[in-house]
Structure formats: structure tokens, C-alpha cells
Simulated scan of single mutants.
Amino acid sequence: MGVEAPMHLRMRGGRREAVHERREDEERHSVPMSDEHKAYQERILRAAHEGGFGGDSEVRTRVGRTWIQTDTLIEGADGRRIGWEVQLSTIDESGLRGVRARAGKAAKNGITPAWHTDRLAYAQRNDTHWTRSDRLPAHLIARNGDLRIVSGFRALDFWHCDTSALYPCPDGVRRCGKAHATAKPRDVFFDDMVRQTAAGTIVPIQFRAGKTTHRYWVTSADRDRLDDLDSDDTRLPPERETTSATGASRNRPTCQPTTAPSTEQDPPTPDVPLTARPLLTALPLQPAAPAAETVPSDRETVPPALEQRKTPTIPQATNTTTGLPTDLIMLQQAADAAHHKLQQLDDHHERDLQRQAWRQAAEIVQAAVTRYARTKRLNRHEVETRLRQLVRHTAG
């Protein structure tokens, strides 16, 4: 399994047995690493290298007479070392009890532990600094789209406990007149988390709320303000310049598709009613989405039956008044015309046939809108709304 670990001989029943010194080394032989685990390791290293930081996977660090095994160790700025541990499989309580021991041993030897999971139960624990993302297949984790951390990162809101405060007093009194901080959940991009923890702009803290001590990741500016608050809670700590850990991105978010990616050849073009065929041939094929994007969300996923064959891109005429492609407008007009014709029919059989024709025309324009929005890096909902308003207002 590619594991190098110290072992020793013992006598058992008159026989010599070679056994590992650490149980976790033995478990690495019986529990193979999942594809999702490998994808996370590769993504952590790639994100770190893009930020100018080095690192390696399955790093063994000697600690006295024992070792520390780190899934992915990132060498950050100013000698900072971030030890990423990816925990995706189900482990029992005995295994979870060892998390704090491993994290504590890493921290004592200059490694900042960063545990990542996709299990909600693990992310809610306070034994170490956990982060969590949605459960995704390996091929999505490994891609360059925006993988979000949905738990573990916080933004600190500092406020004065007076009659105008929005939060209740954490000390349990009506209004104490002191300054307090409230930790509010915030999403952060996984790649940004890797780079900013290595740079020191995102740091771990222990935040006490009531009788519970939580372990969160916050910006270094929030950490400094929290230190000021702890030293003097009679006044609000001063504002500090900071760069937001989250921000807008031109990439689509990484999400789990409803169907597995198909490796089959492109299916043939579906049957189209005679009224829509001339318009369909006029629709140019758009170039494939950039590599930095991932599959669209569920509402934007194009049915496989509507994927067209790859052909050379044809120049696309654009309506100078609206800025939308003329062929896109024609397809929407065809779909609306098919729907209007459906409303005029009374015969049950004819309505079924026309309803099928209308749905096919609607699916074609939906696919065209999706390809156009992905190619131009536009908001698909805004493009669709603008197109419908234009066509139906003109028709009216």
C-alpha cells in the first residue's frame, strides 16, 4: 500500500509476529484510500502551488521515538505548516477519540491541524478545527470549479451590549453595557482556504460561547480584534483593514449532479416538429465551457438527449438593439408559437401531439440559453428572463 511505518516483533503462541507500532498504520493496509480522499489531496496541493506554497502528501514527521502521519502538509509563509487531514469515511467513537490526540500532537510540533470532512456529525465536534463541504464524487472534487466550505469558517460581529443591540447578552443579563463578539457562519472557497491558511490571513481560534468552547477559522483581522476584546471588554475593539476571505467568482460552484457523467457517444439530434426545424438548423454551436468551470446546477443541466454533435463554430448574428443572438430570439419565438397553438386546440389527441412539440421546442431554447450563458460567462437566469421579456413584449 506504499506505507512505510515502524514495526516490531512479538511472540504470540510460540510464533513471532511482525506488527505495527501504531494502530493507524495498520489500518492503512486494510482500509484503502478512497478516490474522493485522493482528489482532496490533489486539490489541496494544486491550490497551494497556485498560491506559491509547497507541500506533499502522506508526510511522516518524527516526534521523539514516534511519528506524525499527515495526509497533506503545506509549507506556508514565515515557517507556517498546515497539516490537512481529510476524513470522509465513517469511523467509530474509538477512532474519533483519537482526533484530539493527533491534533494536539501535531500542534505541539509546529503543525497547525486542519481537518476536513463531508460528514455533518464530524463538523459539529469541537475536538479540533473542522471544516466541511458537501458530499461530492471524486471527479467533481478534482475539478477547478468553486468548491465551497459550508461549515467551519466564521465572521466575527462585534457589538455593544446596550438597548439598541440586535443580539441577546451572552452573560444572561438584560444589558451589561460591555462589548461582545458573535460568530456568524460564512462560506469560503476551499482553494482560498488552503492558500490563506498557508499565508496566515485565515487562522484558527477558540471561541467561547456560554460554557462551550468552539473551534473556528476566522480572518487574522477578526482574531486580532477578538484579542483586543478579551483584553478589555468595556469598549469595542478598533476596526482593522482586512481582505474578505470570500468573494465573487466567475466560475460556477461545484455541485453534485443528479445523474452520473455519461461516457457514451453523443446521441443523435432529437426529432423536431417541422415548424421548428428551419430555426434549429440556424442555431450555431457554442464552444465548450472553459476548463475552469464545472457542471452546471440542477436547474441548468442540459438533458443528454439535447446535446448536439461537435461541429465547427458558426459566426452568430447578434441583435444590435438587445444584444442577444438573433437565433436565440427565433428559437424563443418558435417555442412561444408552439405553446400558443396548443392553447387553440380542443381535440385531446391533437393536444397531446402539440404538447410534445411545444416541450421539445422549449427544451431546445433552454439548451441554447444555457450554452450561450456559459460561453459568455453570464447569469443564465438573467439571460432567460431578458429573452422572454423581449420576445413576448414584442409579440404583444
Rank of each mutant, 00 (worst) to 15 (best):
Q316G: 03
R392T: 14
D35P: 09
E384L: 14
H29L: 15
L236N: 09
D352H: 12
G110Y: 04
T90I: 02
D171P: 03
G55T: 10
K310V: 15
P296D: 11
T112D: 12
T197L: 12
Q69S: 12
T72F: 01
A357R: 11
V203A: 09
S30A: 12
T311V: 14
M193E: 08
T131E: 00
L73S: 12
A248K: 08
L226P: 11
L147C: 03
Y216H: 11
A165G: 12
Y122W: 05
V59L: 00
A395C: 01
T163A: 15
D127S: 07
Q286N: 01
G323R: 09
R309N: 14
T246H: 11
G95W: 00
G110W: 04
E382M: 07
S34M: 11
Q333P: 00
P238A: 11
Q196A: 07
Q256F: 10
A317G: 11
T259P: 00
A179P: 06
L280E: 06
R60I: 05
E241G: 15
W84E: 04
T72N: 04
H348F: 09
K105H: 01
R97Q: 13
N379I: 04
A292T: 14
S297Y: 01
K178R: 15
A373Y: 05
P268T: 06
L324D: 02
G172R: 02
Q316W: 00
G54V: 04
R23C: 09
T322I: 06
G145C: 14
W130C: 09
P238N: 10
R386F: 04
G98V: 00
A337N: 12
T311F: 03
R135W: 03
G152C: 13
L342I: 05
T394Y: 06
M193D: 06
H393C: 10
H20R: 02
P296A: 09
P273G: 06
R154N: 04
D336W: 10
R119H: 13
W67Q: 04
P137W: 00
A183S: 14
R22N: 07
A209P: 04
S220W: 01
A288G: 06
S94P: 02
Q332F: 07
A5I: 02
R148G: 03
R374E: 15
G210P: 07
T394F: 03
D35E: 13
K38Q: 12
R102V: 03
R81C: 03
R215K: 15
H348D: 04
W217A: 08
K108H: 08
H349P: 06
E75S: 09
T219I: 06
T243F: 10
P268N: 04
A395Q: 10
E26G: 14
R359L: 14
R351S: 12
D232T: 05
S231C: 07
T321R: 13
D227I: 06
L9Q: 15
E58L: 01
H8D: 02
K211F: 10
R102Y: 08
A5G: 13
R125I: 05
